[in-house]
Amino acid sequence: MNMSYTTEERGKRNTLSYRVFFKISGGKYISPFHDIPMYADEAQNFFNMVVEVPRWTNAKMEIATKDALNPIKQDVKKGKLRYVANVFPHKGYIWNYGAIPQTWEDPGHKDTETGCCGDNDPIDVCEIGNKVCSIGEVIKVKVLGTLALIDEGETDWKVIAINVEDPEANAFNSIDDVRRLKPGYLEATVDWFRRYKVPDGKPENQFAFNGEFKDKDFAINIIKSTNDYWKALVSKISDGELNCTNTCVSHSPFMCTKEAAQAVVDATPPCGNADPVPSDVDKMYYYEKK
């Protein structure tokens, strides 16, 4: 099923009111978490990826898992919008960052591989292609491997993937191809995740498997398992205290009408002019690696 997705901005960018809602043809609103299929092409193992954060940007945009229809909004900590710091030599996010829909890292499930429970979010993707994507873009990706971040005691898989439309995509079929064709990128990825919270006063993050990347088959099995947890969530078998309102999952007790979905969007402020990004977001942090 090849759907075309469009987005609708509400509120003002760089403020607490900003939201990006998703629609399919015919103007029906959908949830990017629940209504976009996990697979873009199951036979070829291509997955859909919802882009939350374009490469080189700092605003921590994410699918709002606890809001009706799960629009993308900026993460908030202590009442303030959250931006990731530039930890030298990185500028913002160093890949297009996003999530695979219809996946869920169940906080009630202890991962047999890592010994830690899930982080209550869809599975994260770092897309390493050449194009800088935009917020809310839905792209097809080829999975290449995964890194197991342990974030404040929770398992937080980071899937490495490439946009299948990328001019170089055919050359990338394994994590070793990334190592060979984009030297330093995997090491930079580990470094980024290890240190990105240090400017906020947090300790360095830890990894399972000593920060080694697991291969494509391993990554795909992890994604499939998180799809099973999502099915339980959206069928009300599991409870992650997340908002499962959807308009397309026919077996789900949370499915709502087109009119109810429209009402959710109508209750948010209309799109206005963006506020400026705070100047300190451009600051570069330097510190000695441990």
Rank of each mutant, 00 (worst) to 15 (best):
L147S: 00
K214F: 11
V190D: 04
A232K: 15
S250K: 15
Q206W: 03
N221S: 14
D217V: 07
D228M: 10
K182I: 06
K131C: 05
E168P: 04
N170I: 04
D228L: 12
E165R: 09
D177I: 01
A171W: 03
D156K: 05
N246G: 06
Y229D: 14
H251I: 13
A169V: 00
Y196W: 14
P167F: 04
I223F: 02
F207T: 04
F193W: 09
A148K: 11
S238N: 09
K231I: 09
M255W: 03
A148S: 15
E152I: 08
R195I: 14
T155D: 11
N243V: 02
A188G: 15
I128H: 05
I135A: 11
I160Y: 02
N246R: 02
F209S: 10
K140A: 14
P253R: 00
V190Q: 08
L242M: 13
D151S: 04
W230P: 09
I162V: 04
S225V: 11
L144I: 01
W230T: 05
V198I: 15
P167I: 12
P183R: 01
A171F: 13
I160D: 01
S252F: 06
E204I: 08
E154L: 13
R179D: 08
M255S: 07
G129D: 02
H251N: 14
A232V: 03
D166M: 10
N173I: 08
Y185M: 14
T146C: 15
D200E: 15
E168L: 11
V198D: 12
T189F: 05
D217L: 12
K131T: 14
A161C: 00
L149T: 01
T189D: 02
I150N: 03
K140C: 04
G129H: 04
G201F: 12
N205W: 01
V138W: 03
L242R: 07
N170E: 14
A219D: 01
K197M: 10
I222K: 15
I220F: 05
V249Q: 11
K197W: 12
E154A: 07
G136Q: 00
Q206G: 11
K236Y: 02
S174D: 00
D151I: 09
R179T: 09
G153P: 01
K131F: 08
I139E: 00
D151C: 03
T247R: 06
L149R: 02
F254L: 10
S174Q: 01
I222V: 15
G184K: 01
L242I: 13
N170T: 09
N210G: 08
A171I: 08
I222A: 13
I222G: 11
D200C: 13
S134P: 06
V132K: 14
P203T: 08
A188I: 06
R194Y: 10
